[in-house]
Simulated scan of single mutants.
Amino acid sequence: MPVDVHLHITCPYTNELIRNVLEEENGLFTLTNSSNSTNNDILYWLEYEEIDFDTLFRQARDSNNNKKVLANSYCIRKGLIRKANFAMFIQKYLAKKPDAILRNHYPETHVLDLCHPDYLEEALNEAFELRDALEENIQGKNEPIPFILKASILDKASELCIFQTQLELEEYFTTKYNEEEDEDDDDEGNSIANVREWIVQRYIKNPKLLSTYQNRKFHLRVYVVAERNLRIYVYDGILALFASLSYDESDDQSFDRLRHITNTCAQIDTKLQEDDLVKEFFTLEELNDDIRSNIFEQIKLILNDIFTGLHNEVTIFQPLKNAFEIYGFDFLIDETNQVYFLEANAYPDFRQTGNSLSILIKELFQNIVQQIILPYFGYEQSKKDLQRQLHLVYDKQKII
């Protein structure tokens, strides 16, 4: 019998690609909008809020149930996708494993617990190492260290600030709070008044720059697929996302977003076209094969180290044997070709890939269907000649 598919992803770009890939499988999947119970196996490919996790948990526990259910998201993964939770996990992990790979591939990070600008002094006293670094920046004995502020639960480059002193940080928060108080906005979802947890990371001032692309800063968007409990794959269809303007290290103080922020959604009011902002990493000719391979190997090692630590942290990351999930991991490369992990995002925005590289996303979904979904439901993989592949980087049952 075919698998009943409940498909609803809000983004039309993503929803259509998933639908097309499932329909290629010669009737193995039947798309349905019905909630009526059938004897067919079920694939849920839905927005997180629409997944019935209670049903998923019951099915996972019932070994006598012959009906298979698979969903496209884990329930608990805040230790990975919330920046403050991840930073605290890393602090704990590195205390246990001081020689772990992540020590050299995750920027120095501090967590600020801040409910209002008036309490910034208290928050910095808790994050005393950050406070001391900001004081040293004022003293001028060494070259000032810039830091970047990020909201723990906001995405799409929301509320970013580069600063070097406590005063600059105070001015940022005060200005933002005053602006929001003056605005009559019914949408409070992205209000910083609702954000209590922030992270502050040492800003990487020496990013890799490519003259072919006008020395514009870029970061890598890497798609990572978690399967059941627990295997991790990295997709070699990696994106390079470019800023709109050439990078200028001396621009730290004015913080021109179009020079420093590489998220595609942040590139507004720019004359550059989609093809100038989004490239496939393995086609960047200015990076030779050896450099690209070295960068990819670093990414694999970083991912292995992250999930080696996370798979035991069941209160903040809890894989399910009847689920899989796609994450968008962001990495930055410095001028020495060292790779830094920045953050992970659930339900990544595939639209940023654009139309010209949509095949990259389609092949990602094709790989997931072939390597994860079909085997789960007992079907053989169909023979597809895909240019891009998933690479196993972590398996809880064995060392890769």
Results as ranks from 00 to 15, higher is better:
residue 1 M to A: 12
residue 3 V to W: 00
residue 5 V to E: 02
residue 7 L to E: 02
residue 8 H to I: 03
residue 13 Y to I: 01
residue 15 N to R: 09
residue 22 L to H: 09
residue 29 F to S: 01
residue 30 T to R: 12
residue 30 T to K: 11
residue 35 S to L: 08
residue 38 T to H: 07
residue 40 N to S: 15
residue 44 Y to R: 12
residue 48 Y to A: 07
residue 50 E to F: 10
residue 54 D to W: 07
residue 59 Q to I: 05
residue 62 D to T: 07
residue 63 S to G: 04
residue 70 L to C: 11
residue 75 C to E: 15
residue 76 I to W: 00
residue 81 I to Q: 03
residue 81 I to W: 00
residue 84 A to M: 05
residue 86 F to Y: 07
residue 89 F to H: 13
residue 91 Q to F: 08
residue 92 K to G: 04
residue 94 L to I: 14
residue 94 L to K: 05
residue 97 K to D: 14
residue 104 N to W: 12
residue 105 H to W: 06
residue 116 H to F: 09
residue 128 F to Q: 14
residue 138 I to F: 09
residue 138 I to G: 06
residue 139 Q to N: 14
residue 144 P to E: 14
residue 144 P to S: 14
residue 145 I to Q: 15
residue 150 K to S: 13
residue 151 A to Y: 01
residue 152 S to Y: 08
residue 154 L to D: 06
residue 157 A to K: 04
residue 158 S to E: 08
residue 158 S to H: 15
residue 160 L to C: 14
residue 168 E to L: 12
residue 173 F to G: 08
residue 175 T to L: 14
residue 180 E to W: 03
residue 180 E to N: 12
residue 180 E to S: 11
residue 182 D to H: 12
residue 184 D to V: 14
residue 187 D to I: 07
residue 190 N to G: 04
residue 196 R to W: 10
residue 197 E to H: 10
residue 200 V to F: 07
residue 203 Y to G: 04
residue 205 K to F: 02
residue 207 P to R: 06
residue 208 K to G: 00
residue 211 S to K: 11
residue 212 T to P: 01
residue 214 Q to L: 08
residue 217 K to G: 00
residue 218 F to G: 00
residue 218 F to L: 02
residue 219 H to Y: 11
residue 223 Y to L: 04
residue 224 V to K: 08
residue 224 V to Y: 07
residue 224 V to A: 04
residue 231 R to C: 07
residue 235 Y to S: 02
residue 238 I to M: 08
residue 248 D to Y: 11
residue 253 Q to V: 01
residue 261 I to T: 06
residue 264 T to I: 13
residue 265 C to E: 13
residue 269 D to C: 09
residue 274 E to S: 14
residue 275 D to I: 13
residue 282 F to C: 12
residue 297 E to W: 05
residue 298 Q to H: 10
residue 300 K to G: 09
residue 302 I to P: 11
residue 305 D to H: 03
residue 308 T to F: 05
residue 316 I to R: 07
residue 318 Q to G: 07
residue 318 Q to I: 06
residue 318 Q to A: 12
residue 323 A to S: 11
residue 324 F to S: 13
residue 324 F to K: 14
residue 337 N to G: 06
residue 339 V to H: 09
residue 342 L to C: 11
residue 343 E to T: 09
residue 343 E to W: 04
residue 345 N to C: 10
residue 346 A to Y: 14
residue 354 G to H: 11
residue 359 I to A: 12
residue 359 I to Q: 13
residue 365 F to P: 03
residue 367 N to A: 12
residue 369 V to G: 00
residue 369 V to W: 06
residue 372 I to A: 11
residue 373 I to A: 03
residue 376 Y to L: 10
residue 378 G to Q: 05
residue 378 G to E: 04
residue 379 Y to G: 00
residue 383 K to V: 07
residue 387 Q to D: 02
residue 390 L to V: 03
residue 396 K to E: 07
residue 399 I to V: 07
